[in-house]
């Protein structure tokens, strides 16, 4: 029989195994990052529209694009978090619409001071997120089904509570984020800054904190995450709740942009946010992607809409092209992933 004691064996390879220990260089990282493709697409689109229209390449137009995408962009941050955990949220637009009506009515009718109304809106939207998370985690139900149901619930509540009326005469603080300040040769809204700040905040949280790593691990494999001591239940519910609060902030941005509480708002924003996430290179299967990618995805949608508009293309064709872009983005993603294997 084989002897059981063996002398300590030699290393499997004699080559220096830890030559590449340092973090990859910034250039290398940029080249291999999953956001490179979307970024290239965005730059190409910008070049194309700069050449075809005169008005595209102006500071004012870029400021406009940011304003146009800030609401969907903020929703898309929450959507990214959820998709990274291998979930999906169909209810984000409807939850935002309900939040905006709550804020608008509470403040306009004077039931609450404006800031308290805003806080209540955030709590209500966060509550929807919490409920989504609890249903997904505790029952458990597929995120698609939970948020499909919640989409209808929030949509109906919006119309019941608003009595189909647009809420007007909003107090000043509600539309403060719609105010602009001069920057260079153009004017920028404070709301745009809020959206950009949120993108940066969540990008930091995802890439530089333990929480962010756990979100990725959860999306990779909930079982592996659990076996490594991550409290997956708490994490899942937390992600949905954070997303809900982000929808609440989006509700405030929506009010500040339109100046009213509109029960019809946000009806296609759920799909638009998913579009932005996918265009930004985040995988619908979870565990791969980033909010910076989503930011690029949001800008791609915004730039195409804006550029085609400037070219005088009818809006229905913009929708058509967005649809083609999504399928294209996912195709590229699939092919590149197959090659990587």
């Amino acid at each position: 029989m084989t002897a059981t004691t063996t002398p300590p064996s030699t290393p499997p390879s004699a080559s220096s195994p830890y030559a590449d220990l340092k973090a990859p260089t910034t250039a290398r990282r940029l080249l291999t990052a999953p956001t490179t493709g979307p970024l290239a697409a965005l730059l190409l689109a910008c070049v194309f529209f700069s050449l075809t229209t005169d008005q595209f390449l102006t500071g004012g137009n870029f400021s406009l694009i940011i304003q146009q995408v800030m609401v969907v962009g903020t929703l898309a941050i929450g959507q990214t978090l959820i998709i990274l955990t291998a979930g999906i949220d169909l209810s984000c637009g409807a939850v935002m619409a309900f939040g905006s009506i709550v804020i608008a009515r509470m403040a306009a009718e004077g039931s609450l001071p404006p800031l308290a109304a805003i806080a209540l809106g955030l709590v209500v939207c966060g509550g929807f997120g919490l409920l989504n998370g609890l249903l997904v985690q505790k029952i458990p139900l597929p995120p698609f089904i939970v948020t499909l149901g919640m989409l209808n619930v929030a949509f109906a509540l919006t119309h019941i509570y608003s009595q189909e009326q647009t809420v007007t005469n909003l107090p000043g603080p509600l539309t403060a984020l719609g105010q602009t300040f001069p920057l260079g040769y153009t004017d920028v809204t404070y709301g745009s800054l809020v959206t950009i700040a949120l993108f940066l905040l969540l990008a930091y949280a995802l890439s530089n904190t333990g929480w962010g790593r756990h979100v990725y691990a959860l999306g990779n494999s909930p079982e592996a995450a659990r076996l490594n001591g991550i409290r997956t239940s708490r994490l899942t519910i937390g992600v949905y709740t954070v997303a809900g609060v982000l929808y609440g902030i989006a509700a405030l941005l929506l009010i500040s942009r339109t100046g009213v509480g509109d029960p019809q708002a946000g009806q296609t924003d759920n799909l638009d946010s998913i579009t932005a996430v996918v265009l930004g290179g985040t995988s619908l299967f979870g565990g791969r992607g980033s909010v910076l990618g989503t930011f690029i995805g949001v800008l791609i949608v915004g730039v195409f809409r804006n550029g085609l508009q400037l070219m005088g293309v009818a809006s229905i064709y913009q929708t058509l092209i967005t649809g083609v872009l999504v399928i294209l983005a996912v195709t590229v993603d699939q092919i590149s992933r197959k090659k990587a294997r």
Binding site: R213, A217, N220, S221, A224, A225, G287
Partner: peptide, 11 residues
């Protein structure tokens, strides 16, 4: 060390 390794593949 679990049989299915319990690693996060994309990390």
């Amino acid at each position: 060390v679990y049989q299915d390794l319990a690693v996060a593949a994309s990390m």
